[in-house]
Each structure stands twice: as C-alpha cells, then as structure tokens.
Design a protein around this nucleic acid. Structure first.
Ligand code: MN
Ligand code: MN
Ligand code: MN
Ligand code: MN
Lengths: 221, 221
DNA sequence: AAAAAAATTTAGGTTTGCCTAAAAATATAT
DNA sequence: ATATATTTTTAGGCAAACCTAAATTTTTTT
C-alpha cells in the first residue's frame, strides 16, 4: 500500500475541516480557497484522491471523505494536536506560536512515534486551543460547547476553546487575560454593537467586541 | 532568500559526510551511491546547488561545500542529532530505532524550535550514537576517538561511539552489553582472525569479531 | 601514446503538484 | 423558459526531482 504524500494529507485534513460534524459535501472552490491553490489544481487532486479510494467524488457534485480517507485525516489531526501540546507544554511555546510548526510535524509518518509522544504527554484529550485530540483508533470527541454570544447576562461559564486560531486573535486573548479554563461572567451586553463587559476569574472586568465573543467557545459549569 | 528543499538538504548533508574532516572532493558516483539515485540525477542536482552557491563544482572534478553550504549541512546535522536525543532520552526509543525518524524531523525548518528543543534537552553535546552535536553557530567538535582495533591487549578504554549506525549493528551491541560509556578492556586478540575477548565494565567477558572492533570508537581514560 | 575502462555529463522522458485560459455544466435571475 | 452568472472541469504547460540511454571526459592499462 503506497503512502500518502504531504499534499494529499493536507487535502484530506482540509476536506475533513470543511465538511464539519455533519459530513457535508465540500466544494472545489472551498478547497481551492482553503489550500491557497486554484480550482483547476483541486480538481486534479480530487481525481487522484478518488482513485485511491480516499474520497467520494462525482464531477460537479462536491466531495466527502470515505471511511479510509477519514481515517487518514483523523490521524493527521491527531498528530497535529499532539505536537501542539508538546510544543506548548514541554518546549514552552505560546499557543499563538505553534500552529505553523505543527503543520509540518503532523506529516512525520511513524505510528510508534505518535503513540510514544502521546504517552509522554500523558494522553492529553485537548490541544492548547481546546480542540479535542482523536485517539489512536480515530475516535474524536464532539464536545458541544457554545459560543459566548449565546450566554445570558449574569451567567458564569468556562472558557473551553477558540474558533479562530489566528495568532493575532490568540495574542489579543492573552492581553485580555482570557485563557483556557478561565471563568467568564457576562456582566453586561451593549445593545448597540453587542460588545460585552465580562468578569474574568471573578476579578478583572474587561470589554470585548462581538468579533471576539463570536470566536470564544464556552461551557456552562 | 529562497528556502532549501528537503532534497537539497539531504544532498548537502551527504556531501558533508562524504568529504570527511579534511573537506575532500566528493565524486558524483559516491553521491549517487549514498543518496540511492543515479549519477545523472546527481549531476542535475549539483548544477542546482552550484547555482545557489552552496557547493563548489567544476565539471568532472567533484564537489566541496561552500561556507554557506556547510552552514546548511551543519544545521541539518544539528537538528538530526538533537531530535535523536529527544527520541531516546524523552520518548524512550532505543538507539537502533531513531535514525529514520530523525531523518524526517531534521527538515522541520523553525530555528526557534531547534533552540527550544536544545534547551529542553539540556544542551546535549553528543547524540545517542556518540556523534557530536554542532552548536547553534555551526561549530562542530572533532573528538579524536580511536578504533578499538588500535587498542593493545591490557588497555582499558571508554566506549564513545560507533562508526556503523545500522540498526542490526546497534542491536548486536545491545545483546553484548556494549553501551555508550562502558569500560572495555582488551583481554586477548586472536592472531588468526583478529577477533578479541573483551571485559565489559570489569565483569562480563565477551568475544567480538574484527568487524565489530572496526566499528567501535573508544577513548583512553 | 594508444586503447580500453570507468566516471561523468547530456539528451530526452516521466511523475507530482501546480498554473492559466478556455470549455462545459450548474445555478440564478429575469 | 431563457439568459446570465457562477462553478467546475478540461486542455495545455511548467518546475522539481527522478529515470535510461547515449555521448563525452578522465583514468587506467597495455
Ligand atoms: Mn494548529
Ligand atoms: Mn490546535
Ligand atoms: Mn541518525
Ligand atoms: Mn546519530
């Protein structure tokens, strides 16, 4: 059985991300956008992935992952997130610095490496951004967090993850003192622009824009 | 400034290894052999590396690294050896299992990653096979070890490294109890086939063939 | 110093993953 | 339902890294 290339793995991971929890069809254009390539190049790759049995592809109809394609995607995601934990927990990187490095490390192929890394890290269940880490068999939790925009005034929630993974957003959260696991209490919501004042960990009050609220995943306590 | 590809880095590393401590010219055929490619492919790559100023190349005359090429080679070697230390010291791999994985990890580009890894490992000076690790500036120790074949009967030496890095050889040493840092005393050398009996760490006596002696780097105490 | 052998380079192809431009299919608007 | 717009595919090419076969250069032998 031939190995999947770096590029093929990235396509599979992207298809997984774009098809979301419901396994919706992913369009050629969406893939072109996400992979920073042109639609024609995507079509080329889709043919190859279909030939290898990794995706279901009918011309003009979009694609979904096959079972075998999903297995590959989940394995890459597992590696990505485990390496991110390593970079943050062991090497002392910030959560805003690890994505690009993990983007490369995720393609190192050794299964035994992944399992030893997982054990060394203490079998973490979430990565530094709050994203769940698939287990060795490809089981992936779907923790139904909600957006901070759905939380009522007076409610206290735990900060569990981010939707936007951009370094600039994560750095903004750092400056606001909003870290994974922080307790957030919605003190007030501005009618006009939906900006909010939030009490962080019971002491500091900060103001956050709707843009920020829309990207914060939280959980009732 | 364009980045060097995976493949270019491997060629530079191979040229470094083959030119030895004296910086001798490396032949096209030797490179073809070491990189498991054909001579014609090597010629293609040599032209490219010469264009990029990484090697000195005159047709039919063999190649040497330029200062800039050597810098790249040493950086790749540094990464290879640091990752090997990580795999053995932190993840618990055996010294016979890490080479192929490090062969991939050595191409992960981030400078800051390398420096954080180095610090995390406690700035190791040698890799699990006894090979010296270049520092961040590209300074590489040249410890003048000698071969066990050069040691007289009765002499006690420290086991410092291996010439052959093959898993089968390393596993053979494991079975013989010969590890890095072990004290070896040459008890007797067989006239006929130069095989020897050796006392390991002052207790066990083992017999080793010339083939093994030729691949053991040792140091007087 | 030729002739023969070995090493190296050139010539011409292949595959992978990308591109632009043009054609075809699908979706949307009138 | 037709026309228009959008999406997707096809056609034809390019660069990287490899290949085989054929030429060329260097080295070794006679
Ligand atoms: Mn990431
Ligand atoms: Mn992450
Ligand atoms: Mn190695
Ligand atoms: Mn080594």
């Amino acid at each position: 059985m031939m190995q999947n290339s770096f590029t093929e793995e990235n396509y599979l991971k992207t298809i997984h991300a774009l098809s979301g929890r419901d396994g919706l069809d992913v369009s050629t254009n969406a893939l072109a956008e996400s992979t920073a390539t042109r639609a024609a190049s995507v079509t080329d790759m889709l043919k190859k992935l279909a030939d290898k049995g990794l995706i279901n592809y009918k011309k003009y109809q979009g694609v979904t992952l096959t079972t075998s394609g999903e297995k590959v995607a989940l394995s890459v995601i597992r590696k990505h997130r485990l390496w991110e934990v390593f970079l943050v927990e062991k090497l002392g990187f910030g959560w805003d610095e690890v994505h690009d490095i993990a983007e490369e490390l995720e393609h190192i192929p050794s299964d035994i490496l992944v399992e030893k890394l997982d054990a060394y890290l203490g079998h973490p269940r979430f990565d530094p951004h709050g994203d769940p880490i698939p287990d060795a068999k490809g089981n992936l939790l779907d923790p139904d967090y909600r957006l901070l925009t759905d939380i009522q005034i007076g409610e206290k929630v735990l900060m569990m993850g981010v939707l936007d993974h951009a370094a600039s957003f994560l750095q903004h959260l750092d400056r606001s003192g909003i870290t994974l696991g922080a307790v957030l209490e919605v003190k007030d919501i501005n009618e006009y622009d939906k900006s909010a004042s939030i009490i962080v960990n019971g002491d500091r009050t900060i103001f956050i824009s709707l843009e920020v609220s829309k990207n914060l995943l939280v959980q009732r306590r």
